[in-house]
Amino acid sequence: MDSLVVLVLCLSCLLLLSLWRQSSGRGKLPPGPTPLPVIGNILQIGIKDISKSLTNLSKVYGPVFTLYFGLKPIVVLHGYEAVKEALIDLGEEFSGRGIFPLAERANRGFGIVFSNGKKWKEIRRFSLMTLRNFGMGKRSIEDRVQEEARCLVEELRKTKASPCDPTFILGCAPCNVICSIIFHKRFDYKDQQFLNLMEKLNENIKILSSPWIQICNNFSPIIDYFPGTHNKLLKNVAFMKSYILEKVKEHQESMDMNNPQDFIDCFLMKMEKEKHNQPSEFTIESLENTAVDLFGAGTETTSTTLRYALLLLLKHPEVTAKVQEEIERVIGRNRSPCMQDRSHMPYTDAVVHEVQRYIDLLPTSLPHAVTCDIKFRNYLIPKGTTILISLTSVLHDNKEFPNPEMFDPHHFLDEGGNFKKSKYFMPFSAGKRICVGEALAGMELFLFLTSILQNFNLKSLVDPKNLDTTPVVNGFASVPPFYQLCFIPV
C-alpha cells in the first residue's frame, strides 16, 4: 500500500510540474494548442506526416506557434517570411542545433551535424575549407563525379535492359564520391566492405524516417530501456565508426604531411598542428563522427533524390523527352556531361530543381535551437528552445509555385524558357546551418541524371499514369515507394 501511495504522489508531482512548466512558459512563447500533461501535443500531431499537421496548425495559430513534445516546448516556423527572418536575418541567433537524443547517444555531441557552439563552428569551418581545397564546386571533385558517372552508366548497362530496382546502384554512385573525398578511394560496386557500408546507410535513412524515431526523440528514456529499431540505428553508426577508425589508422601509418590526399589526411594534419593548443576540438573521436556525418549527409540524401527523380521522369515521359532533346543538342553522344553545360541547359536545370522542390526530401529539416534569449515577432523565446522549420511550407508555397503539388519544371523557367532562380528554393535548409555539401549534391544530381539520360531511355513496367509517387515514409525524410524500371541503351 505504501508503495502505491508513493507512486501516486510521484505521478501527481510530475503532472503538477508539467502543468507549471507549460503555464509559466506560455506567456512568453508564441500561441499554440493546449498541451496535455506529460505528453504535450503529441496526440494532435500525425507522426506519419508531421508536415501536414504543421500546415493545419498554422492555419489556426499563424506562421509562428508553439507545440509541446512531452514536456519540451518547440517553436514552429511556417512559411517563407518566418523562416527567412529566423535563419537568414537572425542567422546567428537561430544557428543552434536542437535536442536530438538519439544523435546524442550516437555521437556524444561530436561531428558537424549535431554539434553546437565553438566545437560546431570550428569543425564546420575546417570541413568547408577542406572540401573547397579539394575542389568542391571546382574541377578536381567534378572529375571524381564524372568518373563515377561513367562507372554508374557501365553498371546500368550490365542490367541488359531487364527490369531492376535502382535503389542499390543509385546509392553506390554518391557513396563512392564521398569515399573518394574521405578515403581517396572508390570501391567496386561488388566489394563486400562497400556493400556493408551501403547497407547500413540505407537502413539508417529508413529507420530515421519512421514514426518510432519521432517518439524516441521526444521521450528519450525509451532509447535506453525499450527495444526497437533505434538500437539497430545505433549499432549501424557504431559499425561505421569502427570502419572509419580502421581507415584512420591506415592513414596514420602512411600519411605524407607534405601531400595530403583526402579529408582524413587533412584532419590528422590539423590534429598535429593543434596538439599544443589544448583542449582542441580536433580529436580522433571528432574525426570519426565528422566522417560519419559526411557519409550520412552525402550519400543517402543524394541517392534518395536520384531514385525519386527517375520515378518522376517515368511518370512524366514528356519531361524526359525534353531533357534528352536538350542533352542531344548541347552535349551530344561523344563526350561526358560537365558542369559548364548546365548554363546552356535551362530546361534540365529546371527539372533538377523541380525534383528537389517537389519531393521535399527533408520536410522539417533537422531541429534548430536559439543560442540566446531572443525577441522574435513580439515573442520571447528562451535560450536553448528547439525550433522546428517547415521546409515544406517554403518549397510548396502556392504563391511562389502555382499548383505546388504538381510536378512542373516551369516553376523554374521564365516566359522565355530561361532558368529562373527562386529564393524559396531551400531543399538544403538556409542560413548558417545550410548543408555543407550543397554544391557537391547539386553537381552530382546534374551529372548523374544527364549521364543516365544521355545513355538510356527509361521504360516503366506499368502505365506511367498508374505510377504512385507518394512517399512511403514522410517523417525525417521523404522516401519514394518501391518501383522497377528498364534502362534501355540509346
Rank of each mutant, 00 (worst) to 15 (best):
D2S: 13
V5S: 15
C10W: 10
C10V: 13
L11R: 00
L14Q: 04
L17P: 02
R21D: 03
R21G: 11
R26L: 13
G27I: 15
L29A: 04
I45L: 15
K52D: 06
K52C: 11
N56D: 15
Y61P: 00
F65K: 00
L67A: 06
G70P: 06
G70A: 08
V75L: 04
E85L: 06
L87Y: 13
I88G: 15
L90S: 09
S95C: 07
S95V: 05
G96H: 13
F100R: 06
R105V: 07
A106L: 11
G111E: 05
I112R: 10
R125K: 15
L128A: 14
M129A: 12
N133I: 09
G137M: 07
D143K: 07
K160Q: 11
C164S: 05
T167H: 13
F168E: 13
G171Y: 08
C172K: 06
A173S: 04
P174N: 09
I181R: 00
I182E: 01
F187E: 02
D191Q: 05
D191P: 01
Q193T: 15
K200C: 10
I205E: 10
L208K: 10
S209K: 13
S210A: 05
P211A: 07
W212E: 04
W212S: 03
N217Y: 09
N218G: 15
S220R: 12
D224L: 07
D224F: 07
F226N: 03
H230P: 06
N231G: 08
L234S: 13
F239R: 08
M240S: 03
K249C: 10
N258V: 11
C266P: 04
M269D: 11
E272L: 11
K273S: 14
E274N: 14
N277W: 10
S280T: 14
T283S: 07
T283I: 06
I284T: 04
E285C: 07
E285G: 12
E285Y: 03
S286K: 05
T290M: 12
V292G: 06
F295T: 03
E300F: 14
T301S: 14
T305E: 06
T305V: 09
H316C: 04
P317D: 06
V319H: 12
E325G: 07
E328L: 13
R329Y: 12
R333M: 09
R335P: 03
P337V: 10
M339E: 07
Q340Y: 11
S343Q: 14
P346G: 03
H353G: 01
L362P: 05
S365V: 10
H368K: 07
I374A: 11
R377S: 04
P382S: 06
K383W: 03
I389R: 01
T392P: 11
L395P: 12
L395T: 10
D397A: 05
P402C: 11
P404A: 06
M406R: 10
M406W: 10
F407L: 01
H410D: 15
D414H: 06
G417M: 10
F419W: 03
K423P: 15
Y424C: 11
P427S: 10
G431D: 04
K432H: 15
G442S: 15
F448A: 01
L453Q: 01
N455H: 14
N455Y: 04
D463T: 10
N466T: 15
N466V: 10
P480G: 03
Y483K: 00
Y483C: 02
C486H: 09
V490F: 10
